[in-house]
Amino acid sequence: MSQPIDKQRRAFLATASGAAAATAVAPGVFLHAVAEAAPRDSAVSDSVRYGMLIDTSKCAEGCTDCVSACDRENGLDMLLKPEGASDQHWDMQRPRWIRQVKLKNNLTGRVTALPMMCQHCEHPPCVDVCPTGASFRRADGIVMVDRHTCIGCRYCMMACPYNARSFIHESVRLKPTATPRGKGCVESCNFCVHRLDNGGTTTACQDACQHGAIVFGDLRDPNSAVSKALAQYPSEQIRADLKLNTGVRYTDI
């Protein structure tokens, strides 16, 4: 004996399942639409080359604003000294993307200060030596590490002439969404790539520098601030003898 069909129950079930399907699928559809609308849908092109000019005459001795800003922006300050590690040893093992270096000219004794970080070479030795290709250079000139394929061999750190890279020696408990990080991988300055890819035009260190010592921008655009400054002042590359054609230049060392 068959039961009569309950038409109302059927209608309810149909509406309910339709609504459930819409709830499940819609965010994907909408988010997809948002993603497509953003500039990130096109591949990075070499019509841009990001670079920096650092005016060392403006870099104030003892000021570490750029260092703290970088630490905050990239979550380096979220890493805590492991329990039981000595202060000095931890200081040599903690990651640093930018640092201040004070130099004395051997002949004249003149003292200058400057920030050092990844120089974003056109021909980066770290990229040449990386066995898996995790260390790579984007078409827009940014040199960075793919944390998914880095095996932690540290050959790039051996090869970098600027001591610009850091190895994550400890467990990572907290990290910013924009800067993925994992124990046992290598990382370094990436010109705040998360900002640039989301429409930003400045780096954290540049924003933090009260003295205006850091100018950042597109080296290929003759009207960018960095190109204009480079055209106006004499500048140099650090270890120019290696012919790496660095993206970071300095004046008045």
Partner: peptide
């Protein structure tokens, strides 16, 4: 590796935030 890299020929590093 212990021998410091010659990053700035002609200069002496007198302070560094990262062991240069």
């Amino acid at each position: 590796q212990a021998f410091p890299m010659s990053m700035f020929p002609g200069y002496t590093v007198i302070e560094s935030g990262y062991y240069d």
